[in-house]
Design a protein around this nucleic acid. Structure first.
Lengths: 154, 154
DNA sequence: GCAAGACAAGTGCATATGCACCTTTTCCGG
DNA sequence: CCGGAAAAGGTGCATATGCACTTGTCTTGC
């Protein structure tokens, strides 16, 4: 076995820490651009997914967004408060149906431009192809970690 | 230009969202293992870095851990409360010196085993070499996003 | 020795994150 | 029809995250 390089000795060995650090940093770029529309990055992702996939219950959206049901449930509050989406009754007495309001659609359209700015800023620094490769890798990360404990969904 | 594949159309295009999703999922593995020692993943990373790099002020540790100074500052509270580290006065009247207590050292040693379990679980599913490659990629992500707005540090 | 600016840290606010536990509704077997 | 399991959400708690602003301390030029 060869000797460890300086990089290997000094750098983060923890996959979890490395991911969280990178996520924090990259998110800040998106937060900065989206702030112009008064949206957080996570809020944009919720509106965007809801706009793309149409009205659906909370659990379904949470699964689609690969996030915890309760986290999403609470994240909806500010969006509902600001009139961007509504939480109506679902076909079932248990379920609730999420849908964008007209205001939400407008905000989403405006924010999409900001998102593209952020996306462009990151990819200009990191590389467009490299970013696509990274996303593919991250999809695989989610796939392999999801199997072991699919829990609520799948 | 060729047509988009199904994967490309349905998958997350947002680098920020992809990173946060993956970070959440992977962190859960580490949280699950470290819970046996009563530590959160982020707490382990703090103790670990502090143990490896020795006593230092808050700002320095925050920079080293690629996290916000105020986030770290608050994260220290529970660790201090549980007697794992102490926040004493630094050489300077402004700075405060962080250092592990004996209890903290012991806890860190015990938690290290749990961390290895988590690391092994993830790498068994994702691949050891692939994980190393991913960490290298993430280091580059942090490097390129850090330049534009070094702000507090560098 | 002092005032201006730099520097380290703390605080208020708002949101993000997820586990354990609880309530309400269905659904299904008998 | 009833009783229990399953499904969908909600809540309490604890921590994570970071911006703007404040406070206290040092450094430096004069």
């Amino acid at each position: 076995m060869r000797k460890a390089t300086f990089e290997e000795r000094s750098a983060t060995l923890c996959n979890s820490l490395a991911l969280r650090q990178a996520a924090r940093h990259v998110s800040q770029i998106y937060e900065r651009h989206l702030a112009a529309e008064g949206l957080r990055a996570s809020q944009y992702s919720i509106l965007s997914t809801l706009g793309r996939c149409g009205p659906q219950p909370i659990g379904a959206l949470a699964q689609r967004m690969v996030m915890d049901r309760t986290t999403l449930g609470r994240a909806l509050k500010p969006l509902e408060r600001d009139g961007l989406l509504e939480i109506g009754p679902g076909p079932d007495g248990r379920t609730r149906s999420l849908h964008l309001t007209a205001t939400g659609e407008t905000k989403l359209a405006a924010a999409a431009g900001r998102w593209q700015e952020a996306q462009a800023e990151f990819e200009a620094a990191f590389g467009t192809q490299e970013a696509a490769d990274l996303r593919a890798t991250l999809r695989r990360v989610i796939a392999v970690t999801g199997e072991g404990r699919a829990g609520q969904g799948a």
